[in-house]
């Protein structure tokens, strides 16, 4: 295990969305701050800094984690994936992102990246979830704008529980 002095700035290297990157940081620096302010990946948002709201969710080696409860050093040498990685060439939205637009699953968009990163992980591990399971996972996120109905509709579409051609976000 790497040992560092708490007052000593250290070089932290990781793979961000497939690209190797590194920057200097204090050992105590949060991963959320490191991603946003040292690496410029501002798509990850900070909502509460105590692990409740889920805005800052990213993936480390494919697993969703709260980047505000993770030190940047803990991601040393690992694969970090953030919301910036989701869209395809030319900015084409992926299935989950497109479902969010179809169902008006976002308003201000601040909590959205965290929810997308949670479900990118979850749907990869459990591609055929029930509505209850989707609800359980979404319970790890706070959205203040939408009342969640549009998000649930989007998740159901992305999980194949509803037909993509029948947007339901605006209706019930």
């Amino acid at each position: 295990m790497r040992r560092v002095n708490k007052d000593q700035r250290v070089r932290i290297s990781l793979t961000l969305n497939g690209r190797k990157m590194s920057a200097d940081a204090e050992p105590r620096m949060l991963l959320s701050d490191f991603l946003r302010h040292s690496l410029g990946a501002t798509g990850t948002h900070v909502g509460c800094e105590h692990g409740v709201c889920g805005c800052c969710t990213v993936q480390i080696d494919g697993t969703a984690v709260r980047s505000c409860l993770t030190l940047a050093m803990q991601a040393e040498g690992r694969e970090v994936t953030t919301v910036e990685s989701l869209a395809g060439p030319g900015g084409k939205l992926n299935k989950l992102q497109q479902a969010f637009q179809n169902h008006h699953a976002l308003q201000c968009g601040f909590c959205t990246p965290g929810i997308l990163m949670s479900f990118t992980d979850y749907l990869a591990r459990n591609p055929k979830p029930t509505e209850e399971e989707l609800r359980d996972v979404l319970g790890g996120h706070i959205c203040r704008c939408t009342g969640y109905a549009g998000i649930m509709a989007a998740l159901k579409e992305a999980a194949g529980l509803t037909n993509a051609n029948e947007p339901t976000g605006a209706k019930s």
């Binding site: 948002h45 910036e84 989701l86 939205l93 976002l106 968009g109």
Partner: peptide
């Protein structure tokens, strides 16, 4: 009519520009 939001593609891709960004 329910025109899809012009705001969404950027916000869904981490390309929003919030104050701290």
């Amino acid at each position: 009519t329910s025109v899809a939001r012009k705001e969404d593609p950027a916000l869904l891709s981490g390309r929003g520009r919030y104050a701290d960004d």
